[in-house]
């Protein structure tokens, strides 16, 4: 390809993003060249600022520019309930519902022997530390219903059960607007298991 060096460098940088191939990187680079100077400066500054300021909250490990994060420092949140999630983006998904008013704990991954990730690589020890404070009454495990998720849930419940807390896991079943005919057997059986009386 005959790209002038700064353009080649920009395309190369865009290609580092997940799911971005050479064609998409080229489209993005040309889009940036078409933007006005201030917008490009703002975009670059936003990248640097996010990288500089955002850290893991020392309490819940959620990504935030503050420590403790906005959720942990919010006095209106219920301090007796912790919702355990795998990633920071799961906190954002749950916050979007507006249904949960407690605190979170981000594990930063799931136990996956296939990817060489064991319990020591996650923030499980920190969760136990928070729970042993005595203020927590319920732990909600909002973890994906995959094999890795189930392994993590079983491991966590083994550690948390002796602490006589209420441990729950979010329900699984059919997504809203889906079709029964196309649901697989494990999803359907989970949906049947978790049925509710009307």
């Amino acid at each position: 390809m005959y790209y002038t060096p700064p353009l080649a460098k920009l395309i190369e940088q865009f290609q580092k993003f997940p799911g971005v191939g050479p064609k998409s990187a080229q489209r993005m680079a040309f889009f940036v060249l078409g933007m006005n100077h201030d917008s490009v400066k703002g975009f670059a500054a936003a990248l640097v600022e996010a990288k500089d300021k955002i850290r893991n909250c020392s309490h819940c490990f959620h990504l935030s520019a503050f420590d403790p994060c906005e959720i942990c420092s919010n006095q209106k949140r219920e301090k007796q309930t912790i919702c355990v999630v795998a990633e920071s983006r799961d906190v954002i998904a749950l916050e979007r519902t507006g249904e949960f008013r407690g605190l979170y704990h981000v594990l930063n991954g799931l136990i996956s022997p296939m990817e060489g990730r064991g319990p020591d690589e996650l923030s499980i020890r920190d969760l136990l530390g928070r729970v042993q404070g005595g203020e927590i009454k319920e732990i909600i495990l909002a973890i994906n219903p995959t094999i890795e998720g189930d392994t993590t849930v079983l491991y966590l419940s083994k550690l948390l059960k002796p602490l006589s807390l209420k441990i729950t896991r979010i329900a699984f079943g059919l997504p809203v607007g889906s079709d029964l005919e196309y649901a697989d057997d494990s999803t359907l059986s989970k949906a049947l298991e978790g049925r509710r009386e009307l």
Binding site: P113, D150, L154
Partner: peptide
Amino acid sequence: GIESFKSLRNDLDRLSYAL
């Protein structure tokens, strides 16, 4: 699907062996 071994998902020991 042929089999999905649902019962493995309820026991950490059995799931660990399967993994």
